[in-house]
Design a binder for these strands. Structure first.
Lengths: 233, 233, 233, 233
DNA sequence: GATGAATGAGTCTTCATTCAT
DNA sequence: TATGAATGAAGACTCATTCAT
């Protein structure tokens, strides 16, 4: 199709072609709906070769997940310049994230939608990557918390010791979930709403998130009003 | 299994049984992996009957989406008591949302994961519902913005009037998108993470979001730092 | 092919048709070489129906083995009239056996060749049947041994009683094994060699075996010569 | 595995390695289930080389059959010392046969099971070998018959002229079949029954067979009883 | 003498869907 | 209202076999 029928290439190259085709197909059709036939054809090879190199549909999908997770993490990591303030680093991370996922919609679909929708073998694969990102954000938040309410400080990197973490662990995980969810929604929305750039979307998200995080750190959480005669259910 | 082999029931009832079975199956297995056989068996009817009432797999799935979307919207609507402060209304809405999705994990999986993962016919179906909810949130934010910087006030609906809205219209829309996206992600996460109650999830999100909104309203937005000699890739 | 395309038959009937086709195909092509396509076509049904009724190739093959084993055992059993002399009963059993296998070459191929050539699931299935037949023969030999050296007698069931059995127990078992093995081989050979009737095969085997047994009973066993300076290997 | 990766060996050697691997694989997996991949790997060579030397799967299998048949015949031949009595020669032949097949289960599986299970090209290949063995046994029987009832004579080898053969040709073939079948069964049974040595099994078989043969030669065959009112279904 | 790269054809198996009653 | 009987179409996976070097 897109590529002339080039024959006899070294294995490593062919494998990448196959992964490209697989990511595209899985991302657009979904794991179940994607057929190995389609992937092979898109890769410009015969099906047996796909099986020879990547042993099964499951294994192929796993390879896709791993590759996409690695490139995403790498994109974010290399988008963030160390030694700057926490908020700047978050901002840079978000931009890198938005940019990469926007350029790689299929890869992102695999990581975010497909891998989660299909049982343990895959979910675990993504969890590892997610952990890395959550850890990244967590560190930023922790830095901000140590440096006082003003997350805009350019505080040093040290994961230094504060007696207590400002937030319980799974609260942080929840925040990361929320952040990613918000980012996704915004990205999709920005893609569809004319006049809204990806950069603007990122800024909106920073606005949305950063102050909230700041307030949390400063111990000014929003607190639920007392239940007043609600009849639940 | 669960139900005694009762025969000859009115159509409406049978249809609900089928939808119940379908929601459960689609939610757990995914759209593609769910088989009509399994659904029919779980519903306690023969396959031809399923086809007689709901004409195809696609159509059955659509019906599931519509039913689940309707009950979700209704749950949120009836969880919010009108005439109270904006933050309280948002809080109640979120609680209702998280509660409903927690009680209905399969239904939520259908709306959030499955419908989005499988092409246009279904995505559109969900978009309508989403729109409704986004509109609801947008209204709340707008009200809060109009009522002054402190959305935390439990004050009456209109306190002081500032002629201009504190926020440009599409900024509001973006925030609503972000909020809803965050909520969606959190719901999926809370369903899957043991030890996280619906109320906790709602509180986490309120903490995260409301302070950020507050800062925004008060004219203290986070603003992106000027780009300084970045060599973007 | 052979049968007019008759549609809509009760399940039990269709299953037998399928088994007929499967026995024929497995018997002629072998387990691995037989294709489900071929079987389905020969049975005059579509492949899915075969899978609906007999769940897999393995399961179908097992069903064949069981059916053929049962009919073979039944054929032998009903061919032997009780209450007659041991040699007559053996003769009748052999005749029934050879007749049945000659009329059912495919079934016999399945039991004798195919089932043994393909792993445990199947071998075990046949072993049970074989055990039954060996036990039957063992009993006959034991009776003959008890009734005195001349099994050729057409005498009544118990002539003279010698307290001890003329042969040690596992010698009897070995003879039964040998007899059955010889019969099995002869059956396969008779099926394949034109001009050899079941009756002739049975007679050959009786000739071969009965005299040997007779000599054994009468205490005239063949005994191996002393090893004389053999350099083994 | 077993062999160090030695490269560049003369063709004859490589061919034997391949045949070794093929015999093992065919013997254990069966003809159909054995894959050329597995054979090549086990032989420690690449697949194209296998095709270069032995042109196809069929041809490779044929080569296996021929080699195994030749070595089996040779083993039996060289196990029998000429110039001794007929019964001793049979006894020695049986022992050699048992020993060789026990040491070469894969080769024996190929000759006995696989070759027979898969159509003409292979069955014919085995038939030749079988013929040789049958001829060997036939000669022994003939010698015994000539020398009178006592097969223990050490009579000369000559296929010399007696007016009529004591037995019709295909009767002899049947006896050989029966003998081999009995031998096989006994071998399998001896392998599985504790307390029964291969030698004992061989003795049992001689007992079983020799007297029977003797009686046959002496014109004292077992004769079927007159049918008495059988209802032959 | 030897191999990495590649495939056409076929196998088992499953699924959504429909008749005929 | 309800179902037992039946299938066309497609999907994952494997295999014997061949180039090009």
């Amino acid at each position: 199709m897109g590529s002339v029928k080039t024959k006899r290439m070294p294995r490593a190259v062919r494998e990448q072609q196959m992964l490209d085709a697989a990511v595209k197909t899985f991302g657009q059709r979904g794991y179940m709906a994607a057929s190995m036939d389609e992937i092979a054809e898109l890769a410009g090879v015969s099906k047996p070769l796909v099986y020879l190199y990547l042993n099964s549909k499951e294994s192929l999908f796993s390879a896709c997940i791993r590759r996409e997770a690695a490139t995403l993490v790498e994109a974010v990591r290399s988008g963030v310049r160390p030694g700057t303030s926490a908020d700047r680093r978050l901002w840079e991370g978000l931009q890198a994230f938005f940019t990469h996922t926007a350029r790689n919609p299929d890869g992102w679909a695999i990581l975010h939608l497909q891998a989660r929708t299909h049982g343990e073998p895959f979910a675990a694969e993504v969890a590892a990557m997610r952990e890395e990102i959550v850890a990244f954000v967590t560190r930023l938040i922790a830095v901000a918390a140590r440096d006082g309410g003003t997350p805009c400080s350019n505080g040093a990197e040290s994961l230094g010791d504060h007696g207590d973490p400002a937030l319980p662990e799974h609260e942080v995980a929840g925040l990361a979930e929320a952040l990613v969810g918000a980012a996704e929604s915004l990205a999709a929305w920005a893609n569809v709403t004319p006049g809204v750039s990806a950069r603007q979307a990122a800024a909106t998200l920073m606005n949305f998130a950063w102050a909230g995080l700041g307030d949390l750190m400063e111990g000014r959480p929003w607190s639920p009003p007392p239940p007043q005669a609600e009849a639940p259910r």
